[in-house]
């Protein structure tokens, strides 16, 4: 504010002093040209110097640092991704190996167990068949024996009956013939 009020004070002073530029369109007032050019030269020259030697390299440096940093980060990210892909591949390989191995083991185990079961089953069946045959032979023998016993008993009984009823005697062979004729 103090500078501005100073401006106005100065302006008022020159106006009172008698309007050196009265009547002339200010931008075409040649009397102000040296001052304008002089200060333009100083200010713009200073700005150019400051910018080219000091300020713009600072901004440019920051931008370059950032783009370098980004490029580095992208590089390391790509490297990490490559590493991750390799690791994944190795993991997949290990997994499929393990799976194949496990499959193998279970297959062989199953096969051996099946073979064992089959052989034991066959042995058991054979044993059971033998037993069955033995038992059947025994039964057949017993049945035949029992059947022949029945005939004998019947013949004896018939002989006894005939003798008791007839009070005579009959030959056992005749009785047996009769039993057979009945049976």
């Amino acid at each position: 504010m103090s500078i501005l009020s100073f401006t106005f004070a100065a302006a008022a002073a020159t106006n009172e002093a008698g309007e050196q530029a009265s009547g002339v369109f200010p931008p075409l007032d040649v009397s102000t040209f040296p001052s304008q050019l002089f200060w333009l030269f100083i200010t713009f020259g200073l700005l150019l110097l400051l910018l080219s030697k000091f300020l713009l390299p600072r901004v440019g440096g920051i931008l370059e640092d950032r783009s370098n940093r980004i490029a580095d980060d992208l590089d390391s990210a790509a490297r990490m991704q490559r590493d991750a892909e390799l690791a994944e591949k190795a993991y997949d390989q290990a997994l499929s190996d393990a799976r194949a191995k496990a499959h193998n083991v279970s297959e062989t185990t199953r096969a051996s167990i099946a073979a064992e079961i089959n052989s034991e089953l066959a042995a058991a069946e054979q044993h059971a068949g033998e037993q069955l045959e033995l038992a059947e032979a025994k039964i057949r023998k017993m049945r035949a024996k029992a059947l022949s016993n029945v005939d004998e008993i019947a013949a004896k009984t018939a002989k006894n009956l005939v003798e008791k009823l007839h009070t005579g005697t009959i030959n056992i062979a005749t009785a047996q013939k009769a039993v057979k004729a009945l049976g």
Binding site: T7, A11, S31, P34, S35, F38, W39, T43
Partner: peptide, 11 residues
């Protein structure tokens, strides 16, 4: 005349 003016001030 190279007075420091209001124009110079803004520059």
């Amino acid at each position: 005349d190279v007075s420091f003016t209001n124009s110079s001030f803004v520059m």
